[in-house]
Design a protein around this nucleic acid. Sequence first.
DNA 1: CTGAGATCATGACGAGGCGTCATCTGGGCC
DNA 2: GGCCCAGATGACGCCTCGTCATGATCTCAG
Lengths: 213, 213
Amino acid sequence: MSNIAYFPARPPAEDNRPGKRERTKVANRQSILDAARAVFGELGYEAATVRDIIRRTGLASGTFYNYYKSKEEVFDALADDGARRFRPILRAESDKAADFESFLRGAIRAYFDFLEGEHESWRVNRPAGEIFPHARATPEIQAVFDEVHVALAKVLEHDHAPAVDLDYFAAACIAIAREVGDKMLERRPIDVEGATDFAVRMILGGLPALPRP
Amino acid sequence: MSNIAYFPARPPAEDNRPGKRERTKVANRQSILDAARAVFGELGYEAATVRDIIRRTGLASGTFYNYYKSKEEVFDALADDGARRFRPILRAESDKAADFESFLRGAIRAYFDFLEGEHESWRVNRPAGEIFPHARATPEIQAVFDEVHVALAKVLEHDHAPAVDLDYFAAACIAIAREVGDKMLERRPIDVEGATDFAVRMILGGLPALPRP
DNA sequence: CTGAGATCATGACGAGGCGTCATCTGGGCC
DNA sequence: GGCCCAGATGACGCCTCGTCATGATCTCAG
């Protein structure tokens, strides 16, 4: 008698993993994303080709196109991913903020922390001269901007602050955070604290002087 | 007898134009630049190909490469052109400025005027989602940034203003001008006055509150 | 005016990227 | 075990890329 008779194959106690089909799909998508991150890091976004990404995954070229239509779409997916991770952080800051200053400080520090965490995977060998990565206004990124808008409006109103041109103001705040954040990453050691303080003070000092529409 | 004997060909009284060789060279370079501006406007920078530009000039493909090495280089040439026209304006503002506020106001208004004048040739049909055009830090553009740096430093010192982190501050000023300028162009009617006022006040109000390094 | 030489426009070419699609493979399900 | 179809595959046709051998045209010395 073989052992088989005594120890018949038993299905894993709790195998509700998705089927193999679904798993390879997820794996492929992920491996494309990973490859893209690496390729963008090594060659820069402009120089990178879809073929570079494909080669690095080991998949067939047709397979790539089952998942993404173009280099742009992969990049957007990566950007969306970042935005999707950042949004809840921002939301949390907005919810717990007692006044404008603490909201601002929380949000900007969160953003700078986020930047510091991410920049390793991105700046690797980026060709000189690319001022801002080729970010497009993906839905997810737009959502972050909108979130900032709303949060600013809410917090300003709660503070009974005078009405300002919110569109301009939000744009200016985002601009400051972006540029100061960028500069921060170029310095050694990276000083999140100092950069945050600078941005917050710059925005805060400016606010009361803004024109009343 | 033919007329020729009586009216022999006479060289134009004052023909010190450059030779034909030189003239076609200038014309070709210009026609490439014109074509590029049109193509970037119609298709957007990303979608445009060197061939699109070449086709529009009517030149042979090889000829293009006698003048520029790539799409990027043509774009840089266009950007440099803009920067080269803007720099003296900025310089003039810097020279004639009595104090920080008037410098700032002059410079920003100059930039916004410049933007308003240029945007027609650029924004035509730009595909949605391109957040910032693919500006690279060309030497000419870098020069403008440096100019801003120096002007800020000079004017701040002249005002005996407290020392600030000039790198961050310049970055923040440029960021505000850029983003507010962008938003300005999206509104109808375009309100250079209001946008200038906003940016100036935002920067000015913020300055005294900045951290002292 | 002429001829030699310099300069530069031309477009065909090989390399390689692009997106597609007919074909095949193997997981899901009865 | 057998059928079906989601999806992986890679060859294919088309296009762009940058180059280069060729030839046309300008320039200038004699």
